[in-house]
Design a protein around this nucleic acid. Structure first.
Lengths: 229, 229
DNA sequence: CCAAAAGTGTTATGGATACACCCATGA
DNA sequence: TCATGGGTGTATCCATAACACTTTTGG
């Protein structure tokens, strides 16, 4: 800010809205809540909340996510501010969107107060206000980030099969990938740990489980390595 | 937003701050203003302003830029929100940063009320608040965007030499480029118009002037072309 | 005639892509 | 024994990177 005096400036409500992504080993999902206040009561929306005094936006987004899911230490990233004057019919509210990546399989403790539900990213209901746009923008940022940083692992359980990892990247990138090329690429990155356990659910033969070796990744990064898929 | 009632929420001041990039045919610059109010009076800062009622953030950023430079129709892009509770010591203010790309050579009508000055991006004074961080983030977004969209032309005069274009990309990307490879790549994109005029200032032989063919670019994009440098 | 910048193509390298068969196992 | 998904390697192609000499012309 500059020039105008601080007094006599309009203040606005500032909110955060979270695009919460999950992956159920087959499809990419988003977690939506059913709005229980007017306006638009009963319609689906992103989980959101207002910024509190003494709190920054990251804190607010973390708090909002925690309130819904009980989770902490979740990967979140700020996306952008939405500020159309009439975007919220009740009061002038500017909202900053965040996306979060959570691992569905290990945590299904969704707070029931919010009537939340997972929806497939390819078909979910119309959302209130500008939330549809927020989701679309989040999706495109996710696509970019997934090819730049190893964030895919945030969406997977600690141990996962190569097939799951590949399927995840396929749904994020929106294209099918060649199995051998994908595995070659991943192995070339040298950031996975192959366990000697097998997942026997998906086939008779069973498929090996892998883990993301975060320590190794960090060391490689500090040596100048950059993730690229 | 969700759940909390709209009443009794803290409202905040919302500002925009502009990272204004320019290019003088040799170096990348940013336009800074000397702050004439307390706190930090006399220190350099980004040009900014508060969000008005009935205005969205893009409008506010456009207005702020216009006030300083007199320019309209400038390329601007929202970057992100800065929200540390104590980032502005006077009042709780959240700021959304924008970067703008302007063509220095054709417009030097900087409003004198603001004691503004162009600084080389590689050495500019310490800025107030979190403005240094804003500039750093803007720079990294600019680097990314420049290899994704033909925004470089926003910084150049209508007609420019290949050398100028190459130098621009070199300062944005922070690396030197091979002349022949650069020209081959640019020509392969097939979005430039070669005029029959020459710039005689830089050499005895003179170098041809080119223009960005925006119409052709748009047609190509709608045919599925994507700019990539 | 010389200094200074403009202009111009080809080869080499490496990463990306395409592609098909055998293996292990439970039913 | 057979059906199902898991696992594996190589050849081709294309985009990128490296690289040096000739042209023009004002002084």
């Amino acid at each position: 800010m500059f020039i105008e005096s601080y007094n006599q400036q309009e203040k606005v409500l500032l909110a955060v809205d979270c695009i919460i992504f999950g992956f159920d080993k087959e499809n990419l999902k988003i977690l939506l809540v059913k709005r229980d206040i007017e306006p638009e009561k009963g319609k689906w929306s992103l989980m959101g909340g207002f910024l509190n005094a003494g709190e920054n936006l990251d804190d607010a987004a973390t708090r909002v996510l925690h309130r819904l899911t009980g989770l902490s230490n979740v990967y979140m990233e700020q996306l952008r501010a939405y500020s159309a004057p009439d975007r919220d019919p009740v009061a002038r509210t500017v909202s900053v969107s965040y996306y979060a990546l959570i691992n569905i399989s290990e945590h299904t403790e969704i707070n029931e107060d919010f009537s939340a539900k997972w929806f497939d990213i390819k078909k979910f209901p119309d959302l209130i206000f500008d939330h549809n746009t927020m989701v679309a923008n989040a999706m495109s940022r996710l696509r970019y980030r997934a090819s730049t940083k190893p964030i895919g692992f945030e969406l997977l359980p600690e141990k996962f099969t190569m097939k799951q990892l590949q399927t995840l990247y396929e749904v994020i990138l929106g294209e099918t990938l060649d199995k051998r090329n994908f595995i070659n690429k991943i192995n070339a990155l040298d950031i996975l740990l192959k366990t000697d356990e097998k997942d026997m659910k998906s086939s008779r033969k069973g498929s090996f489980l892998y883990m993301f070796d975060e320590e190794k990744y960090k060391v490689k990064v500090s040596d100048g390595f950059t993730f690229k898929l």
